[in-house]
């Protein structure tokens, strides 16, 4: 029971990280990206490549994936949003869908269409080494996933709430025209925010990739949708909402697997999200939260 909870929180913390990235991007640009799942996939493949061909070091994989997906995010923002700033929203949306298809194809070209894994010997220690806490066992990998995800969330919160750039991001998210009039380089803030949100997706990719040790080009599709859904359930512009929704979905899935059958986990997750949205159409934290509100 308690172990299922730990499993669920581990899985959920990664959903939360993905949803948080999505929420930061939407909260600032007021635009949805459908390439978030593919940025996640990109991060996962960075982890696979480094572990398999260079050295099985988690910190190194996280660092490189963070840099790679930060750049990916900046490029996606510039191509899909900055170039189309005055175009209808649908155009940007379509470009992000196009980019996600391109990224999946690129992954097939570079890494092959088949499902790949890191040679088990290389992650044995991480995946099977475990320690006992309060009478139950937790693997090093679970602790690392949970620890990194939580650290990223705390760091993001601090960045947004307590730094000068974070203040400019919040101001821009609330009224980008007024921020522009104060001298804020709004384009740069949009690109930076998108890059940071994407970086969180990339780190989530490394974590999930290692956790399940399964890598394939389309691995980001369902997770991208799930992160989007968790973000919507959380209230779309609320950072705490995204975290709560992500963790809850992870835990519910984990119990569904335990009590029922692993193949029903996505069904249970989405039924739960639909129920929440029917009860609270604006999401759990619909109207409050640090990123919410517009100028008018």
């Amino acid at each position: 029971m308690l172990e299922q909870l730990i499993n669920g929180l581990t899985q959920g913390s990664v959903y939360a990280l993905l949803a948080l990235g999505f929420t930061i991007i939407f909260g600032t640009l007021r635009m949805v990206t459908f390439a978030h799942g593919e940025v996640f996939m990109g991060g996962a493949y960075v982890g696979l490549t480094l572990f398999t061909y260079l050295t099985p070091s988690l910190p190194l994989a996280l660092l490189v994936a963070a840099v790679v997906t930060f750049i990916m995010g900046a490029l996606i923002e510039i191509i899909a949003f900055r170039f189309l700033r005055n175009a209808p929203h649908f155009s940007s949306l379509l470009v992000t869908i196009g980019l996600s298809v391109i990224l999946i194809n690129l992954a097939q070209l570079i890494f092959g269409p088949e499902t790949r894994s890191i040679p088990p010997a290389l992650i044995e220690d991480l995946a099977f080494g475990e320690i006992q806490i309060f009478g139950f066992y937790v693997t090093y990998l679970q602790m690392a996933v949970l620890g990194v995800a939580i650290a990223m969330m705390v760091a993001t919160y601090f960045f947004i709430e307590h730094t000068p750039i974070g203040l400019a991001i919040r101001a821009t998210s609330q009224d980008h025209e007024a921020a522009y009039a104060m001298g804020v380089n709004v384009n740069r803030i949009f690109t930076l925010t998108f890059a940071v949100g994407s970086m969180m997706g990339g780190i989530a990719g490394v974590l999930i990739g290692l956790y399940y040790n399964v890598f394939y080009p389309t691995m980001g599709i369902l997770l991208g949708i799930k992160a989007f859904s968790a973000s919507v359930v959380g209230g779309l512009v609320s950072m705490p909402g995204a975290i709560i929704a992500g963790l809850t979905i992870g835990v519910i899935e984990s119990f569904a697997v335990d009590f029922w059958n692993a193949s029903y986990r996505h069904l249970v997750a989405f039924v739960f999200m639909i129920i929440i949205l029917v009860i609270r159409p604006a999401g759990i934290m619909g109207k409050s939260g640090p990123m919410s509100g517009r100028g008018d």
Partner: peptide
């Protein structure tokens, strides 16, 4: 700006900080 356009979810102090951006 017209209609003041303060950042509604920032504190008064944070709004002033943005003025000195």
């Amino acid at each position: 700006l017209e209609r003041r356009r303060l950042f509604p979810e920032l504190t008064v102090e944070e709004n002033l900080t943005m003025g000195a951006y």
